[in-house]
Structures are given as structure tokens and as C-alpha cells.
Design a protein around this nucleic acid. Structure first.
Length: 492
RNA sequence: AGACCAUUAGCUCAAUCGGAAGAGCAACUGACUCUUAAUCAGUAGGUUCGGGGUUCGAGUCCCCGAUGGUCUACCA
């Protein structure tokens, strides 16, 4: 028993520890026995007719105990649900029955008995034997109101899961969504790969990284901010269809939709372009919604969102012209763009922005949050897209799109830049921005350029933020409700 | 990073204007052989987040700090 635990004692815990020792003295085994279970609560509840009269062997955590002298009822929860036990002194014998009534909330028991319905119609198990599998030493929160304190729910997720079983639903759906993504990509002949989480040069996104240190190599490493540059190296190597579903780490602010570590899908397909990536985005999300939610209509915090395809496809220029009355093609130079942006009430504090960057600012500040229904916004300015291929007919813009749902960026994709000269120039521009004080600008990755020099086929690449997609599909208000152990400050 | 709000028994919450810290559930003792937020009788349980200050008197007012939440900023 740990010192911390000793310090944390209160009377309720002391009582339970005394009971634990008392149980041991009475030759009750603890923590050292496994129990062969043949039935789960859900089976019996769903198919009572098949189970009625059967003898079943189950286990679970004691959640309620109602004693009535020589008979008692208990509610026990297993992985699948709640089942009521009926314990009678006649069936268990005096000594065992007495012991049953001394069990604590939270204790984990195994039991065997007959499936039946009580006079009031409650499906129950009439137990003929039971055994204490694990003694619980800490008092559980109140049964009716449950555990509400958000801090405790996130810090002690195990307790949240015990007390608020509906919380499990979000995580089950999360698992199904990710399973579905893998299934769809498997079917499309994509290979799932794992690329480094620790990068000597953080790349593939504009973000502040976490830094760590390797002692033997005596070098700093960065937790990855994106897997992009490694996955494209694999395209160079001849893996024509690859994907990775894994964590990224960004040393930035936290909010209801930002956790320092978050999960993305990134996929790359040779001989494809960003139009193909739009098709795949639609397919992944729509098939997954159908499979996991049985619908493509979702309700998010009172907003109705229709995921059915095709999604709206519109270029940033057109969209900003339509929604914010900023007509890029009528703007002749950067100073005109600044003036127009300020007229529109857009904050453009930085000096020296190009027309394209101002277009992007206007989009972000005035348009983005209104994109509630799924929308592909196409053709991003080159300055904000250092890894995307520029458009032949309009070199200030790139073959890049982002998909928006509920005003959130859900996907980011492009026809990948595969010209090594151009990529080197783009990196140089990023390095200049970095030297000018932009901590989020990218670093020069010479090995990545070298890879491109060997030749990367035309490739489409796509990234999808899974946590936010899962928030939408589970109607969760906070990213912390779809991450089992969200990042928290250490206690005390 | 900034603003605002919250923190009281194991849990969920009260406490009027600054005037004796409370309830329900959980726990403990007892009664009860079909209850299900079981019921009934009784008992016990407090560093009011921490530290300072004002006051005859602070859960309540002021200052500093901790943690969480919400919003803003940045980002996905």
C-alpha cells in the first residue's frame, strides 16, 4: 500500500480496509483468482426468453445492494450492462448469505445462478453461489447523481466510466469510426504504416513542437507535429498507397477543440490528385457515418448537419467573393487588398502580406466559421501552402483544399508538390519567415528535398482530424469527451 | 497568454444582510424473504481549495496563490 494512499485515508477507506482484512481472515481470496464467465448482462436482457431457467456464470461490479432481512437484491454491472441479483438465505446458506450482505459498493464479484423474472417483472439472477473477486477500498460517488465534477471525471476517467456508463458510448463509437476508416482503406489497397513520432526536424505543418532529448545520441528530438514528410518519402520509395492513423503533438493552446496530443489520419496515393482526395474524404466520412450511426444526418449541439454527398466544392476566391464581397481578381496589388480588407473589418496587423495572404485572412476571419454544412474550399494561396503543388494556370494558388464542417477544419489535402527545386524554394521562404520571428514557420528538411530529387510520382495527400470528426459524430461539446485521458496539469 | 465563474462531508448540493456549518445519497448499528433512487429507527462524519488581511465575529468581504470550467487570442 503506497504512502500516498496512507496519507489519503479517511474513515470510509479505513472501514473498507478493515473489512478487507476481516474477509481475508474468513478465508476469502482476493486479487488472485480468475473467474470463468459464460454470460454477459446484455445477452440476458436482450434474449431473456432464450436464457430463462438457465444457470449462468457471470461477474461484475456491485453497484447497489438492497437487503431485506433474509433476502436481498443487488445490481451488478459488467462490461455490457446492469443485471439484478436475487440472493436468498435459503439458497446460499446462513454464512454465505451474511457475507453477501456485508459486501461493499464497488466490490467485484463472480456469481452463478438461475435466470428468472421477479414478481414485478425484473429480469434477475437467483444466485446459488458467489465469490468476492476484488475488494474495493474507496467509496464510490453517489449512485443517483453520479460523478459530475469535470476535473475528477477527466483525471480519474476510470471512475467516470464506472459511474457514468453512457460515457463509454463515445469511446465505443470512436473505436468504430477508426475501425471503419481502416476497413475502407484496406479495401482500397492502402498500406497502414508507422513513421517516427520523434523527428530531428519537425515538419509537415506549421506549429510549435515539443522538444525532448536523446541522451546517447546527445541530440534534441521533436515530437512530431505531422507525419506528412515521412509518408511522402514512402511514396518516393514505391509504396504507392500508404496511410497512418496516429498521434500528433503540438505545443500550443488548449481549448474545447484542442488537445496537445491529437489523432489524425494521413494518407497518400500516387497517381492521384486533390480531386481524388475529395472523393476519398466523402467516401470515408459518409460510409463511416452510415456504418456507425446509421445515418448521414447528424445533430451537433442543436445544429443539423447533412453529410450526404456530394459536398459543396468551391474555390476560396469564389467563396470569399460571394460571402465577404472581396473580389480577388479585381484587386490589383497588395495595398488595395489591405484597404479592402480593412473596409471589411478584417484585422491585418502584419505588414508585407501578399494579395493571396490577405484573401486567406479574410476567409479565415469572415467565412470559415459559417461553413456549417460540409464544404470543400479549394485552391489556397501558395504562401500558406508550402507543401502543395501550385496551379499551372494560376501560379499564386495551389491544388489544395480544406474540408469544413460546423465551421471547423476537418480535412486538409493537396496535390503534393513533387518538384524538388520548387520545394527547396518553398522551404527557403519558410526559413525566412522563421528568421523573421514566425515560430510556426517550417524548417528546411534537406533529406526530404533529396527524396524528391530521386523522383516522387504525382501524388494526392489527405489529412483528417479524427478527434473533431468524432466530436461531431458523438455530439460532444468538448474534445475532452472523446479523448480518454485528456492532458491535465498534475495534481497539487 | 488575458477576462470571468467555480471550489463547502466520500459524492450531489444548500447556507438570506457578515452572526450557532446543513440535507439527500454513501458509511456505521438495528428491523425487514420480490426490492429496484427499497423502506423504517438510530449513530457518526467538516483544514468550507491553500495562505494572508479587514472585523467583536468570515463559507460569505479584500489581496496573493492552486486547480478546473467558460469565453477571447493562437492553432487542427
Amino acid at each position: 500500500m503506497s504512502e500516498e494512499f496512507e496519507k489519503d485515508f479517511n474513515k470510509l477507506i479505513k472501514q473498507k480496509i478493515e473489512k478487507y482484512h476481516d474477509f481475508q481472515d474468513r478465508d476469502i481470496k482476493n486479487y488472485d483468482e480468475k473467474y470463468d464467465v459464460d454470460t454477459y448482462a446484455e445477452d440476458i436482457i436482450n434474449k431473456f426468453d432464450e436464457y430463462e431457467g438457465d444457470i449462468v456464470k457471470m461477474s461484475g461490479r456491485l453497484m447497489a445492494l438492497r437487503t431485506h432481512g433474509k433476502a436481498s437484491f443487488a445490481d451488478v454491472r459488467d462490461m455490457t450492462g446492469l443485471i439484478q441479483l436475487y440472493a436468498k438465505i435459503d439458497l446460499l446458506g446462513e454464512e454465505r448469505y451474511e457475507f453477501f450482505t456485508e459486501l461493499d459498493m464497488g466490490d467485484i464479484i463472480g456469481f452463478e445462478g438461475e435466470v428468472f423474472k421477479t414478481n414485478r417483472g425484473q429480469i434477475s439472477i437467483k444466485i446459488k453461489s458467489f465469490t468476492l473477486l476484488t475488494k474495493s477500498l474507496r467509496p464510490l460517488p453517489e449512485k443517483f447523481h453520479g460523478l459530475k465534477d469535470k476535473e475528477m471525471r477527466y483525471r480519474q476517467r476510470y471512475l467516470d466510466l464506472i459511474m457514468n456508463p453512457e460515457v463509454k458510448e463515445n469511446f465505443i463509437i470512436r473505436s468504430k469510426i477508426i475501425r471503419s476508416f481502416r476497413d475502407i482503406l484496406e479495401e482500397k489497397k492502402f498500406l497502414e504504416v508507422e513513421t517516427p513520432m520523434m523527428h530531428p526536424i519537425p515538419g509537415g505543418a506549421n506549429a510549435k513542437p515539443f522538444v525532448t532529448h536523446h541522451n546517447t545520441l546527445d541530440m534534441d528530438l521533436y515530437l512530431r507535429i505531422a507525419p506528412e514528410l515521412y509518408l511522402k518519402r514512402l511514396i518516393v520509395g514505391g509504396f504507392d498507397r500508404v496511410y497512418e492513423i496516429n498521434r500528433n503533438f503540438r505545443n500550443e493552446g488548449m481549448s474545447y477543440k484542442h488537445n496537445p496530443e491529437f489523432t489524425t489520419l494521413e494518407l497518400y496515393q500516387a497517381q492521384a490528385d486533390y480531386h481524388d482526395m475529395m472523393d476519398i474524404t466523402e467516401e470515408l466520412i459518409v460510409k463511416t457515418a452510415k456504418k456507425t450511426l446509421n445515418t448521414t444526418e447528424i445533430d451537433y449541439q442543436g445544429k443539423n448537419i447533412d453529410l450526404s454527398i456530394p459536398w459543396r466544392r468551391i474555390t476560396m476566391k469564389e467563396l470569399v467573393k460571394k460571402e465577404a464581397s472581396f473580389d480577388y481578381d479585381q484587386i490589383e496589388n497588395s495595398s488595395q487588398a489591405y484597404n479592402r480588407a480593412r473596409e471589411l473589418g478584417v484585422k491585418v496587423e502584419k505588414e508585407g502580406l501578399s494579395r493571396g495572404q490577405i484573401l486567406y485572412e479574410i476567409f479565415e476571419q469572415l467565412v470559415e466559421e459559417n461553413l456549417i454544412q460540409p464544404t470543400f474550399v479549394m485552391d489556397y494561396p501558395i504562401e500558406v501552402s508550402p507543401l502543395a503543388k501550385n496551379k499551372e494556370e494560376d501560379p499564386g494558388f495551389t491544388y489544395r483544399f480544406e474540408a469544413f464542417i460546423n465551421g471547423w477544419e476537418i480535412a486538409n489535402a493537396f496535390s503534393e508538390l513533387n518538384d524538388p527545386f520548387e520545394q527547396e524554394n518553398r522551404f527557403k521562404q519558410q526559413v525566412e519567415q522563421r528568421e523573421a520571428g514566425d515560430e510556426e514557420a517550417q524548417m528546411m528538411d534537406r533529406d526530404f528535398v533529396r527524396a524528391l530529387e530521386y523522383g516522387m510520382p504525382p501524388t494526392g495527400g489527405l489529412g483528417i482530424g479524427l478527434d473533431r470528426l468524432i466530436m461531431l459524430m458523438t455530439n460532444s461539446k468538448s474534445i475532452r469527451d472523446v479523448i480518454l485521458f485528456p492532458t491535465m496539469r498534475t495534481e497539487k
